[in-house]
């Protein structure tokens, strides 16, 4: 058998069909030159894969979803801000669960619904007018956040993130959701 040089990269990256693999393995057993080449290719592959993939571009995703929504709007008319009603209803349920009714939480330094631990951190968020409910839900899922109050007269929502989570990091994630979040501010704890 002549040296199966062309097949060695596919042998190394695991994409060679099983039947060809066996033939290569048989050849390698008796060919020092090809064994060395396989070693070099494997090292090359390993080294190339040491280069990390970039993190998911959250802003890019927000931009994409906005473009998708804009295209949808051209085909179907939808009332802007339709989600606000749905969200407000959801908030009422949450607030009722905690047995707290508030209209002025944004003026208070600390707002804590009953039954919540003091370690819970809060973020004040204003969403972009055109953000969809699905987008907001997806975003909140990502930071494991929950709307605990809002919207205030200023259109602010209060988001709670779980105990132990980095509130700063959550705020950064929220803030960077281009097309969904207009502003996000960490509530000072004490």
């Amino acid at each position: 058998m002549k040296h199966p040089d062309d097949d060695l990269p596919a042998f190394v990256n695991g994409t060679l069909p099983a039947s060809d693999r066996e033939a290569i393995q048989a050849h390698l057993a008796g060919c020092e030159q090809c064994r060395e080449e396989v070693h070099w290719l494997a090292t090359l592959r390993e080294q190339m894969q040491n280069d990390p993939l970039p993190a998911v571009n959250e802003m890019g995703m927000a931009r994409l979803m906005k473009a998708v929504r804009d295209e949808e709007k051209q085909t179907a008319t939808s009332a802007p801000g339709w989600w606000r009603g749905a969200l407000a209803a959801a908030v009422l349920v949450v607030v009722a669960q905690f047995g707290v009714i508030t209209s002025q939480w944004q003026q208070e330094t600390v707002y804590r619904p009953l039954g919540e631990t003091v370690e819970d951190a809060r973020i004040q968020v204003r969403f972009v007018e055109t953000a969809s409910e699905a987008q907001i839900r997806e975003l909140l899922d990502r930071v494991e956040g929950q709307i605990v109050a809002g919207p205030s007269a200023l259109g602010l929502y209060l988001i709670a993130v779980p105990e132990g989570a980095s509130v700063e990091q959550a705020a950064t994630t929220l803030r960077s959701a281009e097309g969904i979040v207009e502003q996000a501010m960490v509530e000072s704890a004490e």
Partner: peptide, 21 residues
């Protein structure tokens, strides 16, 4: 399904970005 698109974005965007960049 926009959520499915988001899932694909999470899976593919880093690889596409790496290649193009």
């Amino acid at each position: 399904d926009q959520r499915a698109l988001q899932t694909l974005y999470r899976r593919w965007q880093p690889r596409l970005q790496y290649y193009v960049q």
